[in-house]
Design a binder for these strands. Structure first.
Length: 629
DNA sequence: CTAGGGTTAG
């Protein structure tokens, strides 16, 4: 009897078809069949013989199938049938329903099931938390925990691993620590899943040391916890540490999967460690993993951030399948290298494969701006708004301001800022300021710089800029005033840091660094370089120094900039290099940019310099950025 | 029936 009834219900369900216009399909992984259309109502149940009796096992079986296939519409039919036949469910079956709705993506239905339950167990609560958490509703996910505790139910390892990812944002750390103590009390803190969630929680709230402590305390380590600590370091910007942990774990015979490689590649991209990146790529190939779009995307990004667009493109071209992120990553790579034509060309060809999104336009617009394609960029912005019907975000307006500013159309840029539906950010004012500097718009520049100073009174570089503007118009009293107020605030800039990889070794220099073992030779080299390029016309731009010291000291401060140390180091030795690659954590200063251009000419050396905003490919006395960055 | 790590942009 049961078998038969089950068959009948199944047969009915198999008649439900999916309407091709249904939009819900994209929220489901491709391997799972799409859900039934909303056009199907519960009337289907009417055609099930009303006398058909289903047992607990039948419903259980049906619901399990619906959950696995994420077939929420079918699940609703089963649910309605249960109600119609006044079936009294057990907690276990109600949990099945709950999970079916959670996995199917309908929190409202899940909530209703939960509210209708006369008895709940730890699984019911945990399933609900999981639902909120997967929908990014962290607050509600967390809220369930004390409510559950008040009913006398204790969390298990599943519960803790489920709520921990919801400890984000401002109070995330407090909540996370409370849950940590709860985990200690209930002896779940050394559980593998709870441990890696705790580890991840600490790294995401910026407490990487605590994350490491949790990692060290784990009785066993597996791929996930190892990946979590590597990813934690990478996301905290501690790229060297990420690499170090990977190498150590590798020696201990750690198992790797594609997520491990993705996290590792993020760190390598941050360091611009091309040699190491190639080794890891080799490792990936040798490990004969299946194809993962995410992994190839990371490889594309790694190569482009390491300055090798050729390799990025090779990975991109060989992918059997690409996502919008693959395209965006490639576009971003071309953009950061100043290759505007390639950006536009690639953008035009992406439509046959994927639909562009907001990030795509960010990449294309900034690519046009860096590549000097002003009209193309403005056209594409118009296309984005009118044809693609995408609502521009503040970043898109920032790109437009950049485009107009670069073209010297400062007033139009100001109009855009005035009319956009967002409050301008400091980044936006900064880009306008760059334009004012380039086109010598002193009076607007002053207004903008003051605004910036109001918004970020603790950012040292804003004082530098304002003082430079005053200096350019000979207003020395104002210059003195700005310097005075800066001195009073005792502001410090983030130390400049440049690295250069030579013969597979990464050399790191801080500004005015005297710690390198070859500091004497480096200093001598800089002095020599300086003399030679001065003879070719180089004049140090002393306005880049803010300290109130005499000109001689200013020049010596300028010569201590980390990128100059790295360039000098790259010119040392007998090796006949034709090119060097340098990476800097901040934006390159005007004087160092100029210095690099002279060096490239006098020493016939190509310098590829990645700063915090883009690549500068300096050769033959000119730079690919066209002096706008 | 409930659980952990991941890619572009800022």
């Amino acid at each position: 009897m049961h078998r038969r009834s089950q068959f009948i219900l199944r047969r009915h369900l198999s008649h439900l078809h999916f309407h091709s216009g249904e939009s819900a399909s994209h929220t489901f992984p491709r391997s799972i069949p799409p859900p039934c259309s909303t056009a199907i109502s519960f009337r289907v149940c009417d055609s099930i013989p009303p006398m058909a009796t289903f047992g607990l096992a039948d419903y259980d079986d049906l619901l399990r199938g619906c959950t696995r296939r994420r077939a929420i519409k079918e699940g609703r039919v089963v649910h309605a049938h249960m109600i119609k036949s006044h079936f009294v469910t057990s907690v276990r079956l109600a949990n099945r329903l709950l999970v079916m709705y959670v996995k199917g993506g309908s929190l409202e239905d899940a909530r209703q099931v939960l509210d209708g339950m006369s008895q709940r167990d730890v699984i019911s609560w945990t399933a609900m938390m999981s639902g909120y958490s997967q929908h990014g509703r962290s607050f509600e996910a967390l809220e369930q925990l004390p409510r559950m505790l008040r009913t006398g139910i204790l969390p298990n390892e599943y519960t803790l691993a489920t709520v921990l990812p919801s400890c984000t944002g401002h109070s995330g750390q407090d909540h996370g620590r409370q849950i940590h103590s709860l985990a200690v009390k209930s002896n779940f803190d050394s559980h593998m899943f709870v441990g890696s969630s705790l580890l991840d929680m600490y790294s995401k709230v910026g407490e990487i040391k605590d994350a490491r402590r949790v990692f060290n305390m784990l009785p066993h380590r597996d791929v996930v916890s190892c990946t979590a600590i590597i990813s934690g370091y990478a996301q905290s910007g501690l790229d060297e540490e990420a690499l170090e942990v990977f190498q150590q774990l590798q020696r201990e015979g750690m198992e790797c999967n594609y997520v491990t490689f993705v996290s590792l590649l993020t760190a390598i991209a941050g360091l611009a460690a091309l040699d190491f990146g190639r080794q890891v790529h080799g490792l990936v190939i040798r490990s004969e993993l299946l194809f993962y779009v995410v992994l190839d995307n990371s490889l594309i990004d790694m190569y482009s951030k390491c300055g090798s667009l050729k390799h990025s493109r090779r990975v991109f071209d060989n992918m059997p399948e690409r996502s919008v992120i693959s395209w965006n990553t490639m576009l971003m790579g071309y953009g950061k290298h100043g290759l505007g034509r390639e950006v536009v060309q690639l953008f035009k060809s992406m439509f046959r494969e994927v639909k562009p999104n907001g990030v795509t336009f960010l990449a294309v617009l900034s690519g046009c701006s860096h590549g000097g394609l002003i009209d193309e960029g403005l056209d594409i912005f118009g296309y984005m708004v009118s044809d693609q019907r995408l609502k521009p975000e503040i970043g898109h307006y920032g790109c437009v301001v950049d485009l107009l500013g670069r073209a010297g159309r400062i007033e139009e840029a100001l109009d855009v800022i005035k009319n956009m539906p967002y409050e301008p950010t400091s980044a936006l004012w900064n880009s306008l300021l760059g334009a004012c500097r380039l086109h010598a718009k002193i009076s607007i520049g002053e207004v903008v710089a003051r605004k910036l100073l109001d918004m970020e009174p603790d950012n040292a570089s804003n004082y530098v800029i304002l003082s430079n503007i005053y200096a350019a118009s000979g207003r020395w009293q104002d210059v003195a005033r700005v310097r005075e107020s800066m001195k009073l605030k005792k502001l410090t800039k983030e130390p400049g840091r440049s690295s250069i990889q030579l013969d597979k070794v990464m050399h790191i220099f801080f500004s005015s660094d005297r710690s390198h073992p070859q500091r004497k030779e480096i200093f001598d080299k800089i002095t020599e370089v300086c003399e030679r390029i001065k003879a070719a016309g180089y004049v140090p731009d002393l306005s880049c120094v803010l300290h109130d010291v005499d000109d001689e000291q200013k020049e010596s401060i300028l010569l201590g900039h980390s990128e100059k140390l790295a360039i000098a180091f790259g010119l040392m030795g007998n090796a006949c290099r034709e090119s060097i690659r340098i990476t800097k954590n901040l934006r390159i200063c005007i004087d160092c940019h100029n210095f690099a251009k002279y060096v490239s000419n006098v020493y016939q050396m190509e310098i590829s310099l990645r700063d915090s905003s883009r690549f500068h490919l300096v050769a033959g006395g000119t730079c690919s950025c066209g002096d706008y960055w």
